[in-house]
Amino acid sequence: MAERDDVDGDSVTADRPAVALWLRLVPAGLLLVGVAVQAYRIERDDVTSWGAGPAFAMFAQLDHFSTRFVQLTAVTADGAVPFTPPEEADDEVRLYRIEPTSRRASDLAQAAAGDAPPGASTIVVELWTVGLDDGAYLARATHRFEVET
């Protein structure tokens, strides 16, 4: 069986059948499936549209991972007391900024509970995003979950 080279000598082996069109479309298909799955998550869970995941929405939206920040408030008998999440909860904070769901909020509240003021019965987990407001920056709360401790 004779070997067959193309003009550049980059053919692989002889007499192998050409790759079918459907196989050549596999990489493009994977790209579109990834985009569709991520678009669904963005729509359903308000997942950040860029900075994480395969949405290919680079720079499309102002509300994304970098403009989002988290605020924690402990509800005690004396009232609401804001507190800063500990460094050990950095991962949970990051994940909540990326995917602000009740599950992520619960994970964050549990990770931060040790640093909450004494007597906290509930931790309020809020996600804020900084946007523009006619020549000014303005942060707005977009998600809020109350997690019992």
Binding site: R4, D10, S11, T13, A18, V19
Partner: peptide, 11 residues
């Protein structure tokens, strides 16, 4: 996939 094809470049 391209390397599976006898003609690498077109694919």
């Amino acid at each position: 996939i391209g390397l599976r094809d006898p003609e690498f470049w077109p694919s």
